[in-house]
């Protein structure tokens, strides 16, 4: 039994649908219904030998008497933390999580435990995410100041893109929102799952030149690809927690960096660790060293897991650019 295995296994427990956590080819997959749908949309009907859907809060007892249950992680639609209980000992694997409000998925639920396995994507004290609504306001202000320019927003196709759409609606953006072809299937899935996103339109190739003043959401890698050229004097916005650091934003060629993250920032990582009541903390993927150091300074036992194969989903997206789309 493995959680988010990076190679094919017989029995896989999947926290959420991002491709570095949810891979195809496992014998059996246990995940939330939404995560299973996302995997099917990405990998096709036969992505696993067999699947088992588990709702938030439902308990499944495994061989050996371990009770397992899924709890909202607030990361993307269907994302879960996994609680293992055995003879009163409680261990939680967080998967990826955030504490900030997100209108497109169930909010993070705090699960008290003895052992907490936490992600640390933004495990450095410089990662203090501002309120996402303020960043969305920057985007809307810019679209109003430069009404002849298309605003291209690079965002990961699963989760971030749909969160931007929902938040633009909350900010009063009533115009259609345009999306790159790579996002259509997952966006339709969100809408089908009951997340209201308003008028979402797929960008037709010959329509690009007419999209001055519009907001277009696309995978970050496409911002630098030929695809983006046909838009009228495009503004390259990028929505990511990495935009907090100027050198990273410049490296990605962002002209309008939007600090919007689907991962807990430094303050929320620490707050969550304390609130779980766990006495032992295992830190995985991200800046493990700083967070382990911090846990120890709080009198908690902590160790880094040094797992390989998990990146942040955006870095992965950048590493595999889509050419000539």
């Amino acid at each position: 039994m493995h959680v988010d295995p990076t190679r094919p296994v017989d029995y896989a427990i999947i926290t959420h649908g991002h491709s570095d956590h949810a891979r195809a080819g496992h014998g059996h997959v246990l995940a939330t219904p939404q995560t299973l749908r996302i995997m099917e949309a990405r990998y096709g009907r036969d992505f696993a030998g067999s699947v088992q859907a588990i709702e938030y809060g439902e308990v499944v007892t495994l061989k050996g008497g371990v009770d397992i249950s899924f709890h909202p992680a607030g990361h993307v639609l269907g994302s879960a933390q996994i609680l293992f209980e055995w003879k009163g000992f409680r261990a939680v694997v967080s998967g990826d999580y955030k504490r900030e409000r997100d209108p497109t998925c169930a909010p993070f639920a705090l699960v008290r435990c003895d052992l907490f396995v936490t992600e640390a994507t933004f495990g450095l004290p410089v990662f203090r995410h501002p309120l996402a609504a303020g960043e969305i306001a920057k985007l809307v202000d810019s679209a109003e100041l430069f009404p002849e320019r298309a605003h291209l927003v690079g965002a990961y196709s699963l989760g971030k893109a749909q969160r931007l759409m929902a938040m633009l609606r909350e900010a009063g953006w009533g115009r259609p929102i345009y999306v790159h072809g790579a996002m259509v299937a997952l966006t339709d899935l969100y809408i089908d799952e009951g997340v209201p996103l308003g008028d979402i339109r797929h960008v037709a190739p010959d329509e690009r030149k007419n999209l001055g003043g519009e907001i277009v959401i696309c995978p970050p890698s496409t911002l630098q690809e030929i695809w983006s050229r046909k838009f009228p004097d495009p503004v390259s916005a990028v929505a990511s927690g990495w935009m907090r650091v100027r050198a990273r934003a410049r490296q990605q060629g962002a002209e309008l960096p939007l600090v919007i993250s689907d991962h807990a920032g430094w303050d929320d990582l620490g707050k969550t660790i304390i609130e779980t009541g766990a006495s032992e903390i295992w830190v995985t993927h991200g800046a493990e060293e700083a967070l382990v150091y911090w846990c120890e300074s709080q009198g908690l036992r902590a160790r880094p897991l040094h797992l390989v194969g998990y990146g942040d989903e955006e870095a992965e997206d950048v590493a595999a650019p889509v050419e000539n789309t």
């Binding site: 450095l124 004290p125 800046a287 700083a290």
Partner: peptide, 13 residues
């Protein structure tokens, strides 16, 4: 100081 140094190295400014 340790966290500051790590952060300073990462941010570069």
């Amino acid at each position: 100081p340790f966290l500051f140094q790590m952060s300073r190295d990462y941010v570069g400014d």
